[in-house]
């Protein structure tokens, strides 16, 4: 019978990504509820030394698949290796990150294993031995609580920045084992040609702790520098509303909302954003929301923890100045 919880750790260029620790932390809680072991899968090249970190966050065992062809994520290689390992070990649950990588991998893996997958979940529990997952639908305008039927394993992806991180326990260590797998070159059809990093190496909106976002009230692309100044000071990433993106002021990768990114930072500062429903859907799980807007009737104020009625061109630079004084 299928047993145990697996999490698929995520690395880029040999460094574990934060979602990996979030997955181990959640996996630990679920494993304790089930009374079953927690195993982390780590795929990469020369990656074994990272295994001990996963142990400190709660993994009982780390299975390391070390191969040059796994250095950079490709759907073909990762799905083939994880499916082979899952068939050999039969875990009951596999959790992945709802990152770009995890969302690409989950469906492929589910299809290979004939299993169900719940994508982009924000809450997990165990009921009667089965995984129960809560996930936003309509970009967060509603939530669906789902479970699995005749699904071995039960696959789910977890939204980054939502699950609680465990404190690493330096005294904990995981058993580290080498994976045995057969990866045939004929299975590898796609090839990564290059990774173009964004200038400045800024943190992606989906992973950002803080976001400063600008909408139609910014009046033009040239004014985003006042948001960037504030963002630099508080280590935030700059986002935008759909109207700002559709106007061509900001790249589409900056868009927050139903047809953009769904974000959950600790702090979301909305500047000159009225709060269209499709925007609110994408950011209303932020922990603290600040709205700065001229229009006291703007719907964004209904969602904001702190509202400032005023001209963002006065308030934002003043806020930057005040925060600079505090630090």
């Amino acid at each position: 019978m299928a047993q145990g919880i697996w999490i698929v750790a995520e690395q880029r260029e040999g460094e574990l990504r934060k979602i990996s620790y979030e997955l181990v932390s959640e996996g630990r809680r679920l494993a304790d509820q089930l009374g079953q072991p927690l195993t982390a899968l780590l795929l990469g090249s020369n990656i074994k030394e990272k295994a001990s970190d996963l142990g400190k966050y709660g993994a009982d065992k780390v299975i390391v698949a070390d191969d040059e062809r796994l250095a950079t994520y490709t759907t073909d290689a990762y799905a083939a290796v994880i499916a082979e390992l899952a068939q050999a070990h039969e875990p009951a649950i596999i959790l992945l990150g709802a990152s770009v990588q995890g969302k690409d991998l989950s469906g492929r893996l589910a299809a290979k294993l004939g299993a169900g997958v719940a994508q982009d979940c924000v809450e997990f529990s165990i009921d009667n031995g089965s995984l129960v997952a809560k996930r936003p639908i309509y970009a967060g305008k509603a939530y669906a609580t789902v479970t699995y039927k005749d699904s071995v394993p039960q696959i789910a992806t977890a939204r980054p920045n939502v699950l609680e991180l465990n404190e690493p326990d330096e005294s904990r260590s995981a058993e580290v084992v080498d994976a045995s797998f057969s990866l045939d070159d004929s299975q590898l059809k796609t090839k990564v040609v290059e990774l173009q990093q964004e200038a400045g190496g800024k943190i992606d909106l989906t992973e950002a702790e803080r976001i400063v976002s600008g909408g139609r009230g910014m009046k033009g692309p040239e004014n985003y520098n006042i948001l960037e100044e504030l963002a630099d000071l508080i280590e935030a990433t700059v986002g935008a509303s759909r109207s700002a993106v559709d106007a061509g002021w900001r790249p589409h990768s900056d868009q927050v909302g139903q047809t953009g990114k769904v974000v959950s930072p600790n702090l979301y500062i909305a500047c000159g954003i009225s709060g269209a429903i499709q925007h609110l859907a994408g950011m209303s799980t932020s922990k603290v929301i600040v709205a700065i807007n001229k229009d006291p009737e703007a719907p964004i104020f209904q969602k904001a923890d702190y509202g400032v009625v005023g001209d963002l061109f006065d308030v934002v630079p003043a806020l930057t100045e005040q925060i600079r004084k505090l630090t």
């Binding site: 936003p136 939530y143 669906a144 609580t145 789902v146 479970t147 005749d150 923890d305």
Partner: peptide, 21 residues
């Protein structure tokens, strides 16, 4: 044939009204 079964749908948590600064 579905492997995923919906148990229920729920509305998002209401955010409490915040304060105007």
């Amino acid at each position: 044939g579905a492997k995923i079964k919906v148990l229920k749908l729920s509305p998002p948590a209401e955010r409490e009204a915040g304060k105007m600064v």
